[in-house]
Design a binder for these strands. Structure first.
Length: 232
DNA sequence: AACCAGGACGTGA
DNA sequence: TCACGTCATGGT
């Protein structure tokens, strides 16, 4: 029976450390300028933390490449920082993040979150506090906690569900908390492991889980069996 | 040319 | 609780 830890080890061996979360988008060539492979222990600066939180909201149901475009224009429009963001007129903000899609909702969510972020005054929010913020759901909250604040919260996204479900680790009807429990009960309770786990799952899913039937070369035995089940 | 991206929220059963 | 519609641009 496959476990999250086994999957983690296989993925890490196959792809190496991913160094998420990408920060520094828009400062250099317009792509992620400062991935931190093998450098997880470095505490995030305040500006990195905010950029990660903004990215977490912008990437809701959206390809990261589109988020990069949004972050680049946000940066050009005065920088990805709380004061600058709140100063921007609605029109300008929505315009800057247009490429990331849902620009009307997301500009509202960014404002609401930024107000909350400033109230924190540098301290880390709890998960409960984050979930009360309008526009921040479970995945966005856990992304912020894990990558911006270095807290031990597993991030469960569509890719995680897809891979785990395909490999038989969870059922198709598992809730967000179900999947998180499976991971947190079995994986080493280590922040870099959680960060890498999620990043590796995304990297892997982008290669082999885009379209049915899934064919996973890293776990071939499970792959054929599940596909057969899906065809019935 | 449909389909999907590192979701969240509002609504009606 | 839960299924479903909505929000929207951009790549395959």
């Amino acid at each position: 029976m496959l476990t999250p830890t086994t999957i983690f080890e296989v993925l890490l061996a196959a792809y190496g450390p991913q160094g998420w979360w990408p920060v520094g988008v828009g400062e250099g060539d317009g792509r992620a300028a400062a991935y931190h492979p093998l450098d997880f222990a470095v505490p995030r600066t305040d500006s990195e933390r905010f950029e990660i939180c903004v990215g977490a909201i912008l990437t809701q149901n959206t390809a990261w490449r589109n988020v990069e475009k949004a972050l680049v224009s946000l940066h050009a429009a005065g920088g990805v920082q709380p004061s600058a963001l709140l100063r921007m007129p609605d029109q300008q903000l929505a315009d800057a993040i247009r490429p990331s899609g849902y620009f009307n909702v997301k500009s509202r969510r960014l404002r609401v979150f930024t107000e909350f972020y400033l109230l924190l005054a540098g301290s880390a929010p709890t998960r409960e506090e984050l979930l009360k913020v309008w526009g921040v759901g479970p995945e966005t909250a856990d992304s912020m906690l894990l990558y911006a604040y270095g807290r031990l919260h597993m991030v469960i996204d569509a890719y995680t569900r897809r891979i785990f479900s395909h490999l038989g680790v969870i059922s198709e009807t598992a809730t967000y908390d179900d999947v998180a429990s499976v991971c947190e009960a079995e994986l080493p309770r280590d922040v870099p492991v959680y960060q890498e786990m999620h990043a590796l799952l995304v990297a892997h899913a982008k290669r082999y889980y885009q379209r049915l039937p899934y064919d996973d070369p890293l776990f071939p035995q499970v792959s054929s069996e599940t596909n057969r089940k899906n065809e019935v």
